[in-house]
Each structure stands twice: as structure tokens, then as C-alpha cells.
Design a binder for these strands. Structure first.
Length: 114
DNA sequence: GGTCTGACCGGCG
DNA sequence: ACGCCGGCCAGAC
């Protein structure tokens, strides 16, 4: 039986892996990743994992937004505009801190990684 | 070992 | 349309 510490470690690992798999020009939501991991409603954990991730790991956290397509995590980046700039650089248009055509740009791990 | 917070989500007034 | 509320999980003090 694996220790609970290893379990949590997998949780972070999974989040990193999924975010890394997000193709350019696509965005995903914390809730979507959370659901894919089976955490269900605990989408907050996903964002939390990101906080530790984007600083040291090469995680494109800028491709992860909330269910509304809002760049909620931009304030946690080196610069608040860094996230928006990164997304626009990849072809994602941002309008007032929210992703344009969010539903169209949405990348569902549970569906794409099916 | 108890308490608080956190890059969320969905529901309700 | 907007604001407030609880819920849920895991880590930090």
C-alpha cells in the first residue's frame, strides 16, 4: 500500500503533466483538470499545485484559467500582464482579462486524453 | 494537532 | 446582472 504522501505527490504530478499537455492556442480550466484527476470539486487544489509549479517547473500555467475563462491567476505571475501576453503570443486573444471564444479554445483533458 | 488560507465552482438572494 | 455563501482537499504556521 502506498503512503499517503506518495498519493499527494501523484496529484501534483498529474496536474503538471496535464497542463504540460495543453496544446498551444488552447486553454483549460482548473475545474476540468480537477475533474479529470477525480478530485471533483476541489479545483482549488489544481490552482494551488500550479502556484508551486509555475515558479520552478516549466508549467504553462498561463494556459490554465477558471471556468469563466478569466485569467484569475495572472496576479500570481511575475507580471500581471505576463499571462495575457503569453496567451496572445500563442494565438489566444484576451479581452479584459478573459479569453476570447473561451468555449472554442477550451481544451478538455477528460475528452482529449480519453 | 488545530486552524487558516488558497490561481475554484456552483448555487442562491 | 451582481454579490455572497458554503463546499472540498491539501499544505503551511
Amino acid at each position: 500500500m502506498k503512503a499517503s504522501s506518495e498519493k499527494t505527490r501523484n496529484f501534483f504530478q498529474d496536474v503538471y503533466d496535464i497542463v504540460r499537455l495543453v496544446p498551444k492556442g488552447r486553454v483549460t480550466s482548473y475545474g476540468a483538470v480537477a475533474r479529470y484527476l477525480g478530485t471533483g470539486m476541489s479545483a482549488r487544489m489544481v490552482g494551488w499545485a500550479m502556484n508551486a509549479a509555475h515558479t520552478e517547473k516549466d508549467i504553462p500555467a498561463h494556459r490554465v484559467v477558471n471556468s469563466k475563462g478569466l485569467l484569475t491567476g495572472k496576479h500570481h505571475f511575475k507580471s500581471p500582464n505576463a499571462m495575457q501576453r503569453a496567451l496572445e503570443k500563442e494565438g489566444v486573444k484576451i479581452e479584459k482579462d478573459k479569453v476570447r471564444d473561451f468555449e472554442n479554445r477550451f481544451w478538455n483533458p477528460a475528452k482529449e486524453l480519453l
